[in-house]
Design a protein around this nucleic acid. Structure first.
Lengths: 209, 209
DNA sequence: CTCGTGGGCGAACGACTGTTTACCGAATGA
DNA sequence: TCATTCGGTAAACAGTCGTTCGCCCACGAG
């Protein structure tokens, strides 16, 4: 069982988490491929050799960070999906949730944006897989909606990809905005809402316009 | 004058270009922040100290690569903008031009995608400036079209951002596709065309839907 | 023809890197 | 209680790195 793990494994996972946290902190101002093993252990305060007790190399740690990042991201979309309301209200809430998520998990999202096309192949592939699963889930949700009646499955998937990309684009814009400027955030949110609105308009007129 | 530069400066620009080419070649499998000065000079076949005759540091070389990359990218949009035809034909040609551009300048575009959110601040900022100029030009073009009658300037800019983002997304998909699989490329092109179509649909119904 | 400019070279520097080794000592299970 | 497992340590290894320093010598201006 796992709910009562010994003090031994507890301490191990504690330093493992410390390594992940330190790495994420350092990755705020550099990319994974330039982040050194010694740099991370120095930040935590452990010997360099201790690193190997938890990860094979830095790419391994990177993949672990991908899982961690997508964990909180899935929580975000669950928030969005569970909302049930009028279309305009759904849009408003969606953008709001994205903004809040980015504010609360800035480092996680910056890591994903930076390493999505970054220099470490294994991490790149891990992120690609997760985003793909993401789009598939959204496509499955969209297919169940009455607005998708008569839509070809490939068109639903196309729409899902469009939504995912818009979400990434919006989150990236929030991420790059200075954290202490609510006016900039309001502008980004406004543009995102209108873009969602325009896409929904196109969606309603897709078959027979 | 510049059309008759001595053999002295000619040789200098030749090695400078060799450094840029070598860097771009090496950046195919790593990111700028992990690319070493010695690595580049070794690839070219010159002494490490020679690097300083052309660039202050690697970030300097990075912004030079940004300018080079956007040079050919501007040529691409000029190709697209000069096309004048029916809407569906414009869409078809647009996606085709993007595909061809990515095929011919794969390394340049991969560099932009990788460093857009990468670990080198100066390069990131240079790319952001160029993309912003990009969206502004497109917005100015869109405003002149009859379809934009009665549109608020901020809505036109919103639409331009949507188009730019879709272009980047499509080009990235082409870039990540294996170069010798025309079937995958056809699928990407097909999805991109339908996404453009859907956005155009929303655009037509923007005021009074 | 002569002389100064400047691109490229080789060598050296101190600092830092990833990885391996043997070892310590506390938590663990019998 | 005793033997064992194992997370963490210190030290050393061979490389690589960015940067600086004279020096060379082909080129270009006078």
């Amino acid at each position: 069982m796992s709910h009562t793990l010994g003090a031994r494994q507890a301490q191990k996972q504690k330093t493992r988490q410390a390594l992940l946290d330190a790495a994420l902190r350092l990755l705020e101002h550099q990319s994974l491929s330039s982040l050194g093993l010694r740099e991370v252990t120095r930040e935590v305060g452990v010997a360099p050799a201790a690193f190997y007790r938890h990860f094979r190399d830095m790419a391994d740690l990177g993949v672990a960070l991908v899982e961690e990042s997508f964990g909180s991201l899935h929580a975000m979309v669950r928030d969005i999906r569970d909302e049930q309301a009028e279309t305009d209200e759904v849009i408003r809430r969606t953008v709001e949730v994205i903004a809040r998520y980015v504010r609360q998990h800035r480092t996680h999202f910056r890591f994903l944006a930076r390493e999505r096309h970054g220099g470490v192949a294994r991490v790149r592939e891990a992120i690609a897989v997760e985003f793909q699963r993401f789009a598939e889930e959204l496509a499955s949700d969209l297919a169940d909606q009455p607005e998708s009646d008569g839509w070809a499955p490939e068109d639903v998937r196309m729409l899902a990809d469009l939504y995912v990309n818009l979400m990434v684009m919006t989150a990236t814009a929030f991420m790059e905005a200075p954290p202490d400027e609510p006016e900039v955030e309001r502008q980004i949110a406004n543009a995102a809402r209108r873009q969602l609105l325009l896409i929904n308009l196109g969606r309603r007129h897709w078959n027979r316009g």
